[in-house]
Design a protein around this nucleic acid. Structure first.
Ligand SMILES: [Mn+2]
Ligand SMILES: [Mn+2]
Ligand SMILES: [Zn+2]
Ligand SMILES: [Zn+2]
Lengths: 140, 140
DNA sequence: AAAATAATGCAACAGTGTTGCAAACAGTAT
DNA sequence: ATACTGTTTGCAACACTGTTGCATTATTTT
């Protein structure tokens, strides 16, 4: 099943009603195959050999996939975005873990539920962004 | 009391055992006077007229103040750092609020207490970074 | 006042992401 | 199959935030 991710990717893109381009298929397949959230550069490396793609196009494909909710973007303190496919588990909002040594980023399962964040009066909550930082199993 | 912040700043710098430079005093006084966390550029604007300072020096002063724990740095999704003085309240770790419309950032009081983050086996927690996003009172 | 040490200004750089525009492409109609 | 239409792509130039190296200047100590 080496092309299982490819087929899944094609299905997701088709279902989302957008044009099927090799960039979109390849990139989404890469993200589906990956356990962790990976950077633009790591995706570029995965593409070597498979497909040659301008880095601007890569940014635009990632933006398109995120708008279609097929992937999500993870913000981090190193000012580098990381991307991860939206498996069922990660459709809802969730927290992330980032290793302070090797920079690996993984998705955690949930967010602290219904808590009163004691926002000042008049402030309106929209979204919570939570990153747990520490050492991953390989870096401990 | 227009120079109250200045005097406080001087005291804090002296107490931390570093050299007293006008850059450090002015910048810390600005941050002490400010309710919210502000960016490098906003600090530059506040300095206009008062003191002319190279932007590299501003970065280095901010780094120095943060190392001495006189201020803290707030990470955000717009890739811009914001800085805020360490009043007593904010010495410990705390969450932040960021307005999705005007980008204002304020410090919230605390973090979700002792929760099991259900990290994978072998993972070690070091620090939690939490930003609540939404609309501030002026933007609602 | 002189010496020692630390902070500053300047110029050049690095990294990440963005924009504008012409050429290539995918999906669709003929 | 071919032509058409609106999307997507590649390329070059750019913007923004933060860094580095090194000579000069300022602060503190003697
Ligand atoms: Mn995630
Ligand atoms: Mn804070
Ligand atoms: Zn690690
Ligand atoms: Zn606001």
């Amino acid at each position: 099943m080496p092309n299982t991710f490819r087929t899944t990717a094609e299905g997701m893109i088709h279902h989302s009603g957008g044009r099927m381009t090799s960039g979109r298929v390849n990139i989404l397949a890469i993200l589906l195959a990956e356990q962790q959230a990976i950077t633009h550069r790591e995706i570029e490396r995965h593409l070597l050999g498979k497909l040659q793609l301008d880095r601007v196009t890569l940014y635009r494909v990632l933006e398109w996939l995120a708008n279609k909710h097929l992937i999500h973007k993870v913000i981090s303190d190193d000012r580098v975005w990381r991307f991860h496919a939206n498996h069922k588990l990660h459709l809802q909002q969730h927290a992330h873990f980032k290793c302070t040594r090797c920079a690996r980023v993984i998705c955690l399962d949930d967010l602290p539920a219904g808590r009163d964040w004691s926002l000042p009066i008049g402030y309106q909550l929209q979204e919570i962004e939570l990153t747990v930082k520490g050492l991953c199993a390989e870096c401990v």
